[in-house]
Simulated scan of single mutants.
Amino acid sequence: MTSGAGTDVDGRVPADPTAGGSQTRATRMPRDQRRASLLDAANDVFTTRGYHAAAMDDIAEAAGVSKPVLYQHFPSKLDLYLALLDASCDSLVDIVSDALAATDHNADRVTATMSAFYEFVSSASGEFRFVFESDLTGDAAVQQRLWQVNSDIADLVAAVIVEDTALPPEQSKLLAISLVGIAQVSARYWVSSGMSIPIEEATQLVSRLAWRGIRGFPLTAYDPSRL
């Protein structure tokens, strides 16, 4: 099998046979660093071409390695895609978690959560495409991850609702998943329609809609400062 240009089958740059003196083999890239490099290249290829049109040859070429090196880290194209999907899902959960923790003012929490989704879909990294626009949603492993990320985010929101309203967990989770749906669907529409509305204006519009609904559930101990 032919290796990538300028590399041997291990993805290393071979020593120059024309150089004088003793030859020193180039240091192998640390595994974690190599994996991160491969994921970056795969992210570019998948977001540009989609899962089905992308080939492992394309990803190896974009990463500047041979296919054997790529397969050492990821046994299949699906494994590589799922690794990117997992990273994207983790990133979204972290963003929402940080948004909820940034304030204890509930109206601001709603705005921060909506902003988290809008910032995620507008990121130049294209991570959102793995979570919201995957062309592999028929795969069971992808479906499970997409369900899980929505559930994980809803759990974060539900925890705040339970604490503030004393609603049962089941009711709080239903309200939370509804808020997540508003954020996700509206953000997807906003980015797919060309982001003609400025992000701050779009976030405020959707936040007002969500807040006017959730504020109807009063705090367990009324505290005007948290409204």
Rank of each mutant, 00 (worst) to 15 (best):
G4T: 12
A5L: 12
D8C: 04
D10A: 08
V13K: 13
P14C: 09
T18E: 09
G21M: 15
S22Y: 14
S22K: 14
R25P: 07
T27D: 03
T27E: 01
P30A: 04
R31N: 04
A36P: 06
D40P: 01
A41P: 05
D44P: 02
F46E: 00
T47R: 04
T47W: 03
H52I: 05
D57K: 13
D58G: 08
E61I: 12
A62L: 05
A62K: 05
A62S: 07
A63P: 09
G64N: 08
G64S: 07
G64Y: 14
V65T: 08
S66D: 07
S66K: 05
K67E: 08
P68W: 00
V69R: 09
V69S: 05
L70R: 02
Y71C: 03
F74K: 01
S76I: 00
S76F: 12
K77W: 06
K77T: 00
L78Q: 02
D79C: 05
D79R: 06
Y81L: 03
Y81S: 01
L82T: 02
A83H: 13
A83T: 05
L85M: 08
L85Q: 11
D90P: 11
S91V: 05
L92R: 05
L92A: 01
D94T: 05
I95R: 14
V96L: 08
S97V: 03
L100S: 00
D104I: 01
V110H: 14
T111P: 12
A112M: 09
F117S: 08
F117W: 13
F117G: 06
Y118H: 01
Y118C: 04
E119D: 11
S123L: 09
A124Y: 11
F128M: 10
F128A: 08
F130Y: 13
F132Y: 14
E133Y: 15
E133N: 10
T137D: 11
A140T: 04
A141I: 07
Q143R: 15
Q144F: 10
Q144E: 09
R145N: 13
Q148N: 12
Q148K: 13
V149W: 15
D152T: 08
I153T: 13
L156H: 13
V157M: 12
A158F: 15
E163F: 15
T165I: 08
A166M: 12
P168Y: 06
P169N: 09
P169A: 09
Q171T: 01
Q171V: 00
S172T: 04
L175T: 01
L175C: 04
I177P: 03
L179C: 02
A183H: 11
Q184W: 07
Q184N: 04
V185R: 01
V185K: 01
S186E: 06
S186W: 08
A187K: 07
R188Y: 00
Y189W: 05
S192L: 10
M195C: 03
S196H: 07
I197G: 00
I199W: 12
E200D: 14
T203Q: 14
T203F: 11
Q204Y: 14
L205Y: 11
S207D: 15
R208S: 06
L209E: 09
L209N: 07
R212K: 06
G213D: 00
R215H: 01
R215P: 02
R215N: 02
G216R: 02
F217D: 00
L219R: 10
A221W: 14
A221M: 13
D223G: 09
P224Y: 15
R226E: 07
R226I: 01
